[in-house]
């Protein structure tokens, strides 16, 4: 749709967790602030507001993004997945369940960002994207093959998400628990493919 505009605000539609929200946003507002303050989706956290901590991580068109660095006005029509969209208390996502069982958090404030980032990371790896920790032999293999995720790979790929409670070792275990099950076949990756081909 064409945004309704005033000098300082625009009306636009955000598809968050498969629900369309038509909202009027201040041009200065970040996606994170619109989620938290206007849509009352407070699962995405604000740890720094500066792209330094990853607490605000969402999937934007299936890709990990720091929502504190994105202006909402620039995302009319965008599809977002937040932690609330991965699962709920009755039916949590396997990675949410694994975080709970592995005690992969303490205060829980970094946790939604870690989980969303973990899901996004597993998709990236399934699509064969390398990381700084990827071994040379791996890099030389045919592109597109799923990346092998050992602990160093998981740590490297998750390093955009800070946890001051120091839950890192348990977060790595939780991701290991689900790495076989979450990845190329998830909703987010497939949704992106559909959109590209549509």
């Amino acid at each position: 749709m064409i945004p309704q505009r005033t000098a300082t605000s625009s009306t636009l539609t955000l598809h968050v967790n498969d629900t369309a929200h038509t909202v009027t946003v201040d041009h200065r507002a970040t996606l994170l602030d619109v989620l938290r303050e206007q849509l009352d989706l407070t699962g995405s956290k604000k740890g720094c507001d500066h792209g330094q901590c990853g607490a605000c991580t969402v999937l934007l068109e299936g890709r990990r993004a720091n929502s504190c660095l994105l202006l909402a006005v620039a995302h009319d029509g965008a599809h977002l997945t937040t932690v609330e969209g991965l699962g709920d208390e009755e039916r949590p996502h396997p990675l949410q369940q694994a975080f709970h069982e592995r005690d992969a958090f303490q205060c829980g404030y970094c946790t939604p960002g870690q989980i969303v980032s973990g899901v996004g990371m597993l998709c990236e790896a399934a699509e064969g994207h390398p990381s700084h920790a990827t071994r040379r032999e791996e890099l030389q293999r045919a592109t597109g093959a799923p990346a092998e995720l050992d602990r160093d790979e998981i740590r490297e790929r998750m390093s955009g998400n800070l946890c001051r409670c120091g839950a890192y070792p348990h977060i790595v275990e939780a991701i290991e628990d689900v790495r076989e099950h979450v990845g190329g076949g998830t909703d987010h990756a497939s949704r992106r493919t559909e959109e590209v081909t549509a």
């Binding site: 009352d40 407070t42 208390e89 404030y109």
Partner: peptide, 21 residues
């Protein structure tokens, strides 16, 4: 024992101080 508020924290429903509007 698992954390009682664990489910709420991993699914994003646990509300912190700034999340009461």
């Amino acid at each position: 024992a698992l954390r009682r508020e664990g489910r709420a924290k991993v699914t994003g429903t646990a509300r912190y101080a700034a999340e009461h509007t």
